[in-house]
Design a protein around this nucleic acid. Structure first.
Lengths: 312, 312
DNA sequence: CTGTTAGCGCATTCAC
DNA sequence: GTGAATGCGCTAACAG
């Protein structure tokens, strides 16, 4: 029977047909759990992200689920809110014993125990023992956006979204490089405090900034689109025009960015490609194909999308 | 050993301590797969939705994941794009043999095979054999929004988003009721054709409508917020003012609705509550606690959120 | 080619 | 209270 369902070569046609008939008649359904126990595979991979309520991660998850399906894998999604204790909990819980591998976008250091599991880092989570990383070149992306802002004639450009994550550091570094190259020494930055970047938080931060500062910046480079949209709303509620008084740009090209008023200039990563790369690398590791030389970093293509928030 | 990890009552303290020590020393990790084989439980539930790229489903998924965690369950997310063939595939694949239950938001009829699995319907998927349903009262929600539009003085109100789904039918019915009660005989409706409701599709539909019709409707009741945002953008691109020329309202209260220009009047379901109810019902069924009398329908609270897209 | 069997790691049952 | 044994459904290995 097993030989039939698994298409074992050395079975006579007659036997195969006979078994198949019984299978159909009895409505046989494979128990994938038992197979998993035997083979050590479950056909599940985990996707760990801060929050599905954030459009970027939701879109990423959608792409990952579709990419995984190509490999006949199902995706278990866990959200952590960027809280290190929840990340640890998730990464040590029963979850990791039931999945073949994990796609990780985390903020905490490598949790003990995860090292054993095939893993791929999405973005810039703290490096896990020889897990390949996949993502856009954040420095280049940030540099591109800020360069665009500079090209639009702005000089007092604020970098918004700094926090204690590698992604934030890289995006700030891109900002710094672009500013320095343009001989714009005055770096301005505004921190974002808690949890995953969100429009709500950004609205509060930027509203407060505008109330406090006499002169608003000429442009705001928000570290992602959610922040940018919060900023946009705050600026307009403050009675200023976008891009007239303050230009705004972000990173991610979430769906909303094409529909906001004004539409948002941003950097669009190719999420389908990112997901494909990530799942591909994960499958390689699961199948025991080791990374090229112990460590890989795959860069996903991105492009600048210029919209009304920076040009009239 | 098994007795210790499972907190079996009749174990001497000394023995318990001794076993525990060995466990720690050897770094014992329970194999949940083997346990699952034995107990018939995996601790996984599946969430089947059309698309995580749609903010409503993304927010729903986030809530479901958090609610499931309260029950120590992990959530497997599958997206179907509302394509019946993919729904069937997902519902018959290995997935369903590995999860304890499934939360289903589908558009196709009940797939053969799913009937055996504990299931809870989210929204108005076609009824699956004695699976309880959870969701807002769509007729009431739609009626509330349309009533609000009527209260604002509008008469020529367009219902937008009709398609071959139960949710669409119910929302149209709410619209019809409100219109009829107000003695507004002229029902206007605009269909939405393919796949999950999206802002992109709505933009095209509404732009076309405005180009064709001499006189635009006074108000548009979009069957969800994504449609509303697409409509909003189309109306404004057409040179009309919102709400001055055309008022717009939706349902869902996705994050974007508080940040759009103008912000969107909508109906906000309590998603955390919905998720809690749904997971609770699912756990009941998994544990063999049958639904009250074979069939349950749980209504989630909602509230009208009035914003700038209907009132100046 | 075909039929039988050991054992994946656990929980449960049964002797002790 | 404790230790040993059975079997969940499957696959791989082996003997026929």
């Amino acid at each position: 029977m097993s030989n039939v369902v698994n298409n074992y070569a050395y079975v006579s046609d007659e036997m195969r047909a006979r078994v198949q008939a019984s299978l159909d008649e009895l409505g046989y359904q494979m128990d994938y759990l038992a197979r998993g126990l035997r083979s050590g595979r479950t056909g599940f991979v985990a996707l760990v992200v801060p929050s599905l309520a954030e459009p970027y991660f939701a879109a990423l998850a959608e792409s990952v689920i579709r990419a995984a399906r190509e490999h006949r894998l199902s995706v278990l999604v866990e959200t952590t809110g960027n809280a290190p204790e929840i990340e640890r909990e998730v990464l040590q819980g029963s979850l990791t014993r039931m999945v073949d591998g994990v796609l990780l976008n985390a903020v905490a250091g490598p949790a003990p125990g995860i090292a054993e599991l095939p893993a791929v880092i999405l973005g810039e989570s703290p490096p896990v023992a020889n897990a390949p990383q996949v993502g856009i070149d954040n420095v280049a992306a940030a540099r591109t956006v800020v360069q665009h802002l500079i090209d639009c004639g702005h000089r007092r450009i604020l970098a918004y979204g700094n926090q204690d994550t590698e992604t934030a550091r890289l995006r700030f570094e891109g900002y710094r490089q672009a500013m320095t190259e343009a001989r714009l020494g005055r770096l301005l930055n505004l921190d974002y405090d808690s949890g995953p970047w969100s429009a709500e938080g950004a609205y509060r931060d930027v509203a407060k900034l505008l109330r406090r500062r006499a002169r608003p910046p000429e442009a705001i480079f928000a570290f992602n689109d959610s922040l940018a949209h919060g900023a946009l709303r705050a600026i307009r509620d403050h009675g200023l025009a976008v891009p007239g008084d303050v230009a705004v740009a972000g990173i991610d090209d979430i769906a909303m960015s094409a529909f906001s008023e004004p539409p948002l200039t941003t950097v669009a990563p190719d999420l389908d490609e990112l997901a494909r790369q990530a799942v591909g690398l994960l499958v390689d590791r699961i199948d025991g194909r080791p990374a090229a030389h112990g460590f890989t970093r795959m860069l996903t293509p991105f492009r600048l999308v210029v919209r009304g928030s920076t040009v009239a």
